[in-house]
């Protein structure tokens, strides 16, 4: 168990190293440097030159890379050009929003996918199963931004069930129940959009898992003991099929990160994805590099999480 986790983490280190190298090279290709964020009309060009000298702008690239990495480990990514604040503070603020969105989305994904997967497996080849399989096909095929816009148009503007942008109503007072509700209400539609799209894998996996389980001996034993079919499903099959689903958690998080760029742009939700798009627009390179590095790191972490959960629930992997 621990052996596999340690080994898996060791594999991650070179990946992280290459990722940081790529991000560093990309950052070098971008115009500007960490001090571009400090330039104002009153700044003396000589002063900037001096700062560059001091910070090692003219050092060989490997020295620069080393310095950049050590700073990054301490959470220092320089100054934002547009917002004039430290990049880490800026991202921290947005990461909080994205975190809540991801949290609610993940819960919704499981709330939608688990019953649908179980029902599809149980009523295999019947109308219920065919409808669910069709739904999971559509949710697999439809691009995030198309569904997001259609949801925003229908539920946000036509039916006006949900607010159309932002994270909280301006009338809500901080600390009241209303404030919390308003926050939740704002992230519900983006979260539903993501959840509808993110269920495909789990539904299909659970469905095949349950169809397989129906033929297993332990189900026959349970049935011959006289346990009603409902109970066999809820107690025996469901529990056995549920564990591997936990391993999807890591992939769900990775998928969420990719989707956050579209979903946050569409729903005007000030999270990291929206920050990324607006930073590209304003050429705010210190923010961009920090975000790419962070997203890459989180994606690696998501994969790690999936593998660890998988090794806990599936002993066959541990032996390997």
């Amino acid at each position: 168990m621990w052996k596999i986790i340690v080994r898996r983490v060791l594999v991650m280190i070179p990946q992280l190293f290459v990722l940081s190298l790529i991000v560093f090279i990309m950052a070098k290709q971008m115009p500007g440097d960490p001090f571009t964020g400090l330039i104002t009309p009153e700044t003396d060009p000589n002063r900037i030159e001096e700062l560059r000298q001091l910070s090692g702008f003219y050092d060989p690239w490997y020295v620069q890379y080393y310095n950049w990495m050590t700073n990054a480990f301490q959470g220092d990514f320089g100054q934002s050009y547009t917002y004039k604040v430290a990049v880490s503070n800026l991202i921290g603020e947005r990461a909080f929003n994205t975190f809540w969105l991801a949290f609610v989305s993940t819960i919704l994904v499981y709330v939608i996918a688990i019953p649908l997967g179980v029902l599809a497996g149980r009523y295999q080849e019947r109308i219920m199963d065919k409808t669910i399989v069709l739904y999971s096909f559509i949710s697999y095929a439809i691009p995030t931004f198309v569904l997001g816009l259609i949801f925003l148009f229908v539920f946000g503007y036509q039916l006006q069930w949900f607010p159309t942008s932002g994270t909280v109503s301006i009338h809500a007072e901080r600390g009241t129940f209303e404030y919390v509700w308003s926050k939740f209400h704002h992230l519900l539609l983006p979260a539903i959009t993501y959840a509808v799209l993110g269920t495909t894998g789990i539904i299909q996996y659970l469905r095949t898992e349950i169809i397989d389980a129906k033929m297993q001996d332990y189900v026959k034993t349970a049935r011959s003991k006289g346990i009603p079919m409902n109970k066999v499903y809820s107690r025996h099959i469901f529990r056995n099929s549920l564990l591997p689903i936990a391993a999807f958690l890591g992939f769900t998080i990775t998928g969420l990160l990719g989707g956050s760029i579209f979903i946050e742009t569409i729903f005007g939700f000030p999270g990291m994805g929206q920050l990324f798009v607006s930073s590209i627009g304003s050429r705010d390179y210190s923010v961009i590099t920090a975000l790419v590095l962070l997203y890459g790191f989180l994606a690696l972490l998501g994969g790690l999480l999936s593998d660890i959960i998988m090794s806990i629930v599936d002993p066959r992997i541990r032996i390997d």
Binding site: M26, L257, F276, G296, A299
Partner: peptide, 19 residues
């Protein structure tokens, strides 16, 4: 290939496009 699979592809494509 394993490394490519873990990259935040969409973001890196966007950065490439912009530089």
């Amino acid at each position: 290939i394993d490394f490519f699979m873990t990259l935040p592809t969409l973001m890196i494509i966007i950065v490439f496009v912009s530089i």
